[in-house]
């Protein structure tokens, strides 16, 4: 049985139907990539899984139990941690305070875990007392991921962690995602950066205007002509 099963969910923003029956699954220990053009509905899907949005149709099961419609703060205690799109850090709190906020669901933050997170992101350790708002974009993204890790996730939802970052930093972040996954955390990754995401992911799904149009293992998708044309900018040799 897979850890997360999404079964035909439909999500509306008022009259706009952003998701039109999306189904996919994520197995324990996997990295699953969710690809798609701008506005395809990737963020919407993630928000629905993390409980920030409520589907109007369909079911989401986590660990065999239905979780659609459960609010985000309850899902966190089940181990679903979300790193929302666009580096939402608390700008006027220090790096340390941000990490402590990540452990909000516990009575007190776990010092060992914090040390581990800082080992993953040595840059954050150097800036532990700095205001998060003054960090560079890449550092903020690291902080956002680190903060989510402080909530001891079983399923980590990452929404475009490479957004707007220099290639070197993107590589670093993807390496860290792999490391996190090796620690036993299941990852659902939304990305535009298709080649790197698919190289990392076990499996992937391609969304187009609210529907899943393609699925396969990372390698299969990387080799797929349509993916190559749409995301890697290659001409289809027809």
């Amino acid at each position: 049985m897979s850890l997360l099963e999404v079964d035909g969910i439909e999500v509306r923003y008022g009259a706009i139907k952003a998701l039109k029956g999306v189904s996919f699954e994520v197995n324990e220990g996997e990295i699953v990539a969710l690809l798609g053009a701008n506005g395809a509905g990737k963020t919407t899907t993630q928000k629905t899984v993390s409980g920030m949005l409520r589907p109007s149709l369909g079911e989401i099961r986590y660990d065999g139990k239905r979780i659609d419609g459960t609010p985000a703060h309850e899902l966190i205690s089940l181990g679903i941690c979300h790193v929302p799109e666009g580096r939402h850090v608390f700008p006027r709190m220090t790096v340390n305070e941000n990490l402590e906020m990540g452990a909000f669901r516990f009575k007190r933050p776990d010092d060992k875990l914090q040390a581990h997170v800082l080992d993953l992101f040595p840059r954050l350790r150097e800036r532990i007392k700095q205001q998060a708002g003054t960090l560079s974009g890449g550092e903020q993204q690291m902080l956002a991921i680190g903060r989510a890790l402080m909530g001891k996730p079983r399923l980590l939802l990452l929404d475009e962690p490479s957004m707007g970052l220099a290639p070197l930093i993107v590589k670093q972040i993807f390496d860290i995602v792999r490391e996190i996954n090796n620690d036993g955390v299941t990852v659902l990754l939304v990305e535009q950066n298709a080649s790197q995401a698919l190289a990392l992911a076990n499996r992937g799904y391609v969304l187009e205007t609210g529907e899943i149009v393609l699925t396969g293992t990372g390698r299969e998708l990387l080799a797929d002509d349509r993916v190559r044309a749409a995301y890697l900018g290659e001409e289809i040799a027809s």
Binding site: S50, M52, P71, A72, H73, I76, S77, C81, H82, V83, P84, H88, V89, F90, P91, R92, M93, E100, M101, G102, F104, R105, A144, R147, A148, G151
Partner: peptide, 20 residues
């Protein structure tokens, strides 16, 4: 602390498990 978080960034507050 939850209030401080909400004031700073509501989305992030939600993502850290605060019942806003």
């Amino acid at each position: 602390r939850a209030w401080a978080a909400i004031r700073e960034d509501e989305v992030a507050a939600q993502a850290t498990g605060i019942n806003t």
